[in-house]
Write a protein that binds this DNA or RNA. Structure first.
Lengths: 341, 341
DNA sequence: CGCTGTTATGTTAGCGCTAACATCCTTTTT
DNA sequence: AAAAAGGATGTTAGCGCTAACATAACAGCG
């Protein structure tokens, strides 16, 4: 029994590597690398031969090694507070379709509206040498803020407008709140209850409430608030309506922080035999299809969600190409007057 | 002007590295690595000192380098056909919450119901040395199939039951189709139209149709099919209802491939002044909250979406721990008889 | 004909980390 | 008291790839 076997492969898998392809094709490793990553830098004939060899050996590039060597991955970190909310899903879709077309892969993180969780995700994502990072919102923990401000790659803060670390695409939530409050006043409502879910965490709902309140108080009216324990669902909206009817029997309108709550309330009002808007008016926020298909159609504010994602991605791509891009963009919103107010 | 500057840093970033932490803490690099990744293998006192140094220097581990060295990342590849469908979102949520708790990060891919796109995503994800891979569905292109069968890590095929490459968690779609068809027959309907969207791509809807058809034809009834160009939305459901009324004026029930279509049709029937189920009965599939909050409540079949994701993740985690796990699990479904049939 | 510029390919030296083995203690066993 | 076992830490050698520089071959030019 011979003692010295050939230096056994101690690590690594059995997978084909780039240098195996290079040997098989009779070129150097870097030429294979170029044939795959910068085809125009390799002679057409050589390239074809290399690609055929790649195919023949079933070579799958090790992207981890490539990222380490080049100190950059084609990852885009995307951090959202929730996946249960259709709004974020649509923004992600907009981001995804735009980035994927350019060969970037999204790394998705979900904070559950927890800023510490956000900081932790940021740490992890920075560790992956992402090309850029997208967060929903401008508020971060101190730890997160310092991580981000030391980072040297593009950062996009989405959904709302304000003082951003780097790039910013969003809309003015307090103006949206004012807009809806004005609409409700115009329609003659005076006892308007604002209903939000977990407003301390979904602070953009809080910004809208602030705008709403500003307008109402400007008219000398009260702006009672009901802050639910749940974020937004048809169930919660139904329960909220009952609660409003009980605690504010004279209320003539309810301004909900999102369409899920508003639609839940609207459908529940029908079950209770209440007329909307005759007995109680209902307004939402987001402009989800759901609210536009119920009868009466929900009055709401539509934000360009998918477009916001696309636009954010385009800005980031331009920045990654080295182009100068404007730091802030207001995507606006649109009041959709329905039949529920 | 001196010609030879100190060998300039040609590559890499200015970021703190593990060996810088090691130097600062007066230990070797491997000890820092252990303190972070396998704390129990380092003396408590040493560990505390190292962690303090990590904190002080703001060290963020380079996960790319770690993955290359260990030939494994804590990525789980998850490939779904669509993000527009709440079903997949909920499955992803179930996967995500379970994996995230164990420190795994999901790499999300969206095929848009295109099997070639799926194969391409699989290639990319294999290149990232993922720990496991999850796909929605059992059908793959040949290229994808050969990539997957050569792979040596766990694979989970979800949503449906059948011959899987490795692990399989899902439900029996043709049985679900039979179940709803039986329900409709029991309620006395005889002219039942099945409406799907892009059934060639959403082939699970096709499996349900096959079950539906089997039951109807067993009773000597026709099983007309309407296959839409759009997958599922309230709009498409509304349009589909109009189309059914026109082409099948004697239809007494419509069996929709999903709740979005069904609810869109139901809400549209109300707008048209049609009685549901008196004039036309409507049934769906999925058991989304939406359908349970409209009046009349939608008859549908509920699949345990989030639970399916959690279960799949648990199985994969067990497998990654080296435990033996059963290869197939039927998560079942539940008929939710509403007031729409 | 040497000069410059261009194109195609190769050589070298890491990227930052961890597996595997090695070493050096301390404790336990017999 | 010597041997064995275990705990803590260190040394070495890559993981598979690409940036940077180097080289070679050839065309165009005055």
């Amino acid at each position: 029994m011979s003692k010295s076997s050939p230096p056994r492969r101690r690590r690594g898998s059995a997978r084909t590597t780039l240098s195996q392809v290079a040997d098989a094709a009779g070129v150097s490793a870097i030429t294979v690398s170029r044939a795959l990553n910068a085809p125009e830098r390799v002679n057409a004939e050589t390239r074809r031969h290399i690609l055929a060899t790649v195919e023949r050996l079933g070579y799958v590039p090790n992207l981890v090694a490539g990222s380490l060597a080049s100190a950059s991955s084609r990852f885009i970190a995307v951090i959202v507070p929730s996946l249960a909310n259709a709004v974020f899903i649509e923004v992600i879709q907009g981001l995804q379709e735009t980035f994927e077309a350019e060969g970037y892969q999204i790394l998705l993180g979900n904070t559950d509206y927890d800023l510490d969780r956000e900081a932790q995700l940021v740490r992890t994502f920075l560790g992956w040498s992402c090309s850029a990072l997208v967060t929903a919102g401008l508020r971060h923990s101190d730890a997160c803020h310092s991580l981000l401000s030391q980072w040297d790659k593009p950062i996009m803060e989405m959904m709302e407008l304000g003082e951003a670390l780097d790039l910013n695409v969003g809309l003015d939530h307090s103006e949206a709140g004012r807009c809806m409050a004005r609409h409700l006043l115009t329609r003659g409502y005076r006892q308007i209850v604002y209903v939000a879910g977990r407003m301390a965490e979904d602070y953009r709902a809080g910004l809208r409430y602030a705008g709403h309140r500003e307008i109402l108080e400007g008219e000398g009216l009260a702006a009672p608030l009901l802050d639910l324990a749940h974020l937004g669902s048809l169930e919660a909206g139904a329960a909220a309506l009952e609660h409003v009817l009980e605690t504010h029997p004279r209320a003539d309108a309810v301004h909900f922080a999102n369409d899920d709550l508003a639609t839940g309330a609207l459908l529940h009002a029908q079950r209770l035999g209440l007329g909307v808007p005759k007995d109680i008016a209902i307004a939402g926020f987001n402009g989800l299809p759901l609210g536009q298909h119920v009868t009466p159609r929900l009055t709401t504010i539509r934000s360009p969600r998918r477009h916001m994602g696309q636009l954010a991605a385009q800005r980031l791509l331009a920045r990654l190409e080295g182009d100068a891009v404007s730091r802030r963009q207001d995507v606006g919103f649109e009041l959709l007057p329905g039949d529920s107010t």
